[in-house]
C-alpha cells in the first residue's frame, strides 16, 4: 500500500488486533446496540404520533425542568466543586481525609436512599425546610427540590475530575503569583482557574449528563406534579406503566438527542479551552 490508507500503522505496542476487537465489540454491544434499538422502536410509529408524544405540553414542561435544573445544578456544582477541590488539594486541615471521603457519598449511596434522606431534610418540617419556610420558599415537592437533589448527586463529578488536575498543577505557579504581589483571590482567578478550566468543563459535562438521567434521588423530593415538578425520566416511566411504549421511546429519543447536543458543546468548549491554555 503505497501512500494509500492504512488501517493500522505498525507500532511496537503488541496485541492491536485482539485489543481493538474487544474495544469495538464492547462499544457496539453495550452502547450502540441499545441506542439503535431505541431509535428503531421510536421510528416504528407514525411521524404525527411521535411528535404528539415527544412535544406534548406535559413533555415540554418535563424537558424544561430536567434540562433547566440540570444545567443550573451542574453550573453551581462547577463553582462549588472547583473551590472544594482546591481546598482539599492545597490546604492541610483537620478531618481533611474525612471530608475527602464524604465527597464520594453521592456516588456510593443508592439513589433511593439519597432521595429519602434529601426529602427528610427538605420537607417543611425538616432541617433545611424549616430554614427556608420563613422566606416563603418551599423546598420539597417543587422544582427547587429537583435542583437540590441534582446538586447533591452532581458534586462528586466536578470534585473528582478537578482533584488530579489541581494536584499536577505546580505549586510554584501559585507561589510565583504571590511573589509578584497577587492576593489569594487574584491568584485563583488569574493563575489557577485558567489552568483548570478544561477539567472544570469536563466535570460540568459529567455532572450535567448524570443529572439529566437522574431518577431515584429526584422522584421522592420532586413531588412529581405533571407540568410543575415532573422530570423527563419519570415521564418515560409513567408512559411505560400505561403501556404507551411509542410515547416513551419518543420522549427518550428527544432526551437522547438533547443530551448528545449538550455533551458535544461541552467537548468543543473543552477543546477550545485546552488550546488557549498552551498554544
Amino acid at each position: 500500500m503505497s501512500g494509500g490508507f492504512t488501517f493500522h500503522r505498525p507500532t511496537a505496542v503488541p496485541a492491536f488486533g485482539p485489543a481493538f476487537g474487544i474495544a469495538m465489540l464492547g462499544t457496539g454491544l453495550l452502547v450502540l446496540l441499545p441506542l439503535a434499538a431505541l431509535l428503531l422502536r421510536a421510528a416504528g410509529q407514525s411521524f404525527d404520533s411521535f411528535v404528539d408524544a415527544a412535544f406534548s405540553p406535559r413533555a415540554m414542561a418535563a424537558y424544561r425542568l430536567s434540562f433547566g435544573a440540570s444545567l443550573l445544578a451542574a453550573g453551581v456544582n462547577a463553582v462549588v466543586g472547583t473551590v472544594l477541590a482546591w481546598v482539599l488539594v492545597r490546604y492541610r486541615f483537620p478531618f481533611r481525609r474525612i471530608v475527602d471521603a464524604l465527597i464520594d457519598l453521592p456516588f456510593a449511596l443508592p439513589t433511593a436512599v439519597a432521595g429519602v434522606a434529601l426529602t427528610t431534610i427538605a420537607a417543611p418540617d425538616g432541617i433545611l425546610g424549616r430554614i427556608a419556610e420563613p422566606f416563603g420558599i418551599k423546598l420539597a415537592f417543587t422544582p427547587f427540590g429537583v435542583f437540590l437533589a441534582l446538586l447533591f448527586i452532581g458534586l462528586p463529578f466536578v470534585v473528582r475530575t478537578l482533584q488530579p488536575v489541581l494536584q499536577d498543577l505546580e505549586p510554584e505557579l501559585e507561589e510565583a503569583a504571590a511573589l509578584l504581589g497577587a492576593g489569594r483571590a487574584s491568584t485563583f482567578l488569574r493563575v489557577v482557574l485558567p489552568a483548570i478550566a478544561p477539567a472544570a468543563a469536563t466535570g460540568f459535562a459529567l455532572a450535567f449528563a448524570r443529572s439529566v438521567g437522574e431518577y431515584g434521588s429526584v422522584i421522592f423530593i420532586a413531588g412529581n406534579m405533571p407540568m410543575v415538578s415532573e422530570i423527563a425520566p419519570l415521564l418515560i416511566v409513567v408512559q411505560l406503566e400505561q403501556f404507551q411504549y411509542g410515547a416513551a421511546t419518543a420522549i427518550a429519543t428527544v432526551l437522547l438527542g438533547a443530551s448528545l447536543a449538550v455533551l458535544l458543546v461541552c467537548v468543543v468548549l473543552q477543546r477550545r479551552l485546552e488550546r488557549d491554555r498552551v498554544a
Partner: peptide, 18 residues
C-alpha cells in the same frame, strides 16, 4: 511573600502557560 517585594526565579521557571 507578597509583602516582601523580592524577585524569584524558579528552577522550572513557573511561567503562566495561558
Amino acid at each position: 511573600a507578597r509583602e516582601r517585594r523580592i524577585g524569584f526565579v524558579f528552577q522550572n521557571y513557573a511561567l503562566f502557560r495561558h
